[in-house]
Computed example of a mutant assay.
Amino acid sequence: MAVDFPLWAIKAVDKLRRSFLWRGRKDALGGHCLVAWGKVTRPLELGGLGIYDLKYLGWALKMRWAWLKKTETHRPWAALPIQIPDQVKAFFSVAFVSEVGNGKHTLFWTDHWIFGQRVVDLAPRLFEAIPIRRVKQCTVHEALTERSWVFYVKGALTVGVIVDFLHLWEVLYNFELEPDVEDVHIWRLSNSGQYSAKSTYEGFFLGSMLFRPYERIWKTWAPPKCRFFLWHFWYLLLRQVGLHSLSPQPSDIYFDSWWEKASSATSGLILKGLNSLIVLGAWSIWNHRNRCVFYGTAPSLDGALTLLERSVGCGV
């Protein structure tokens, strides 16, 4: 949180993590890594394994400095010029919105405080005519007191600047500060409105496609390494527990669609047991397939079922 983790160090740690994940040892060749590391470090619901991306995690933790500096100005280090990467600053600027009271802890030009927007977005050409010192330091309270913001314009008065000036004047015309009310800052990424490292880290994956079956894979009783791979064969397996009516039909083309349909037909412990069996069955098929390919074992449904029974019996 306090120090930038060098890129070379992140790469060195990730090399060890990849090797341990795929080979259980210190070193692994590229061919041993079956899934790209960027996919592995996605959250479970986005199709990854939930292993932290160290760069994003570091940025999420660093954002706590910026948040505390914004919301708890009484801290002894709040006035210090803490160094924060540009990527963190950019993310932080859009991660919170301010509800202005007295305006003393909200930046006039760059914070989201006017109907969730920033002055720089409402009047970009006017913003270009403001000295950088004013941009960084000017609070809403300072800018609106006696309409001081009007006198900050130092650049050329082009048509665009004048148009933006008039627009901003109209927006702010009836805005009034509340001297006895403190500004409130709301973290957009969490339901509570307060910063958390978890919500911030997950924010780096906003816009990613949801991996729909992740709950059916990971929230089961099947051992973790079984949940790592999935495939198909189900009637003989499900018949043993009286669930053969849920086995795939000729019209079921896609594994995920069948699994979703079968899961929706059950609930409670039966649902969890069904999902566990499907994961265990897929693991057995994958294992049996490997024995056929690499050791010359003859393909056999009975062989796959026997392998599953042995796996369950020894805890996989």
Rank of each mutant, 00 (worst) to 15 (best):
P124N: 09
D164G: 14
L122I: 07
S148M: 05
T158R: 13
I132S: 08
L122S: 06
V153G: 00
E170A: 14
V140D: 02
D164Y: 11
S148V: 01
I132W: 06
E170Y: 05
R118T: 11
E176R: 15
A143S: 07
D164I: 08
H112C: 15
L144D: 02
F175T: 11
L177N: 08
W113S: 00
K136Y: 07
I130F: 05
L166D: 14
T158N: 13
R125E: 12
L126W: 00
Q117E: 10
C138T: 13
Y152R: 00
I132H: 03
V140L: 05
V150N: 01
R133N: 09
Q117M: 07
I130H: 03
L144E: 03
P131S: 02
A129Y: 02
A143V: 10
V119Y: 01
F165N: 02
G160S: 14
H112K: 14
L172H: 13
R133G: 12
R147A: 08
E170K: 12
S148P: 00
Y173W: 08
F151S: 09
H141A: 13
F165M: 14
L172E: 03
D121P: 04
V181M: 11
C138V: 05
V150A: 05
L126H: 03
W149A: 04
E170Q: 14
C138Y: 00
W149V: 04
E170R: 12
F115N: 15
L144C: 02
H167A: 11
A143P: 01
H112N: 11
A123H: 01
V119K: 01
A156L: 09
A123P: 07
E178P: 01
D180E: 11
S148Q: 10
K136T: 08
F115K: 15
F175W: 14
D121W: 05
W169I: 00
L144M: 15
E128G: 03
P179E: 15
E182W: 02
F151W: 07
L144I: 05
P131G: 05
L166S: 14
A156F: 13
V153A: 05
G116Y: 05
I114M: 09
P131K: 03
R147C: 04
L172D: 03
L157R: 11
T145F: 10
V153P: 02
S148I: 00
T145W: 06
R125C: 04
D180F: 13
I114H: 03
E170D: 14
F165C: 06
E142P: 03
G116M: 07
V161R: 06
P124H: 05
P179Y: 14
V159F: 11
H167T: 12
D180V: 12
P131L: 09
Y173V: 04
V150L: 12
W113E: 05
A143W: 03
C138I: 03
L168K: 10
E176G: 01
K136P: 00
I114W: 07
F115H: 14
W149E: 09
L168A: 12
K136N: 09
R118F: 07
V119F: 01
G155N: 11
D180P: 01
V119E: 05
L157A: 08
W113Q: 00
A143C: 09
G160D: 15
D164N: 14
L177R: 13
F115E: 10
T145P: 00
T158F: 08
V150F: 13
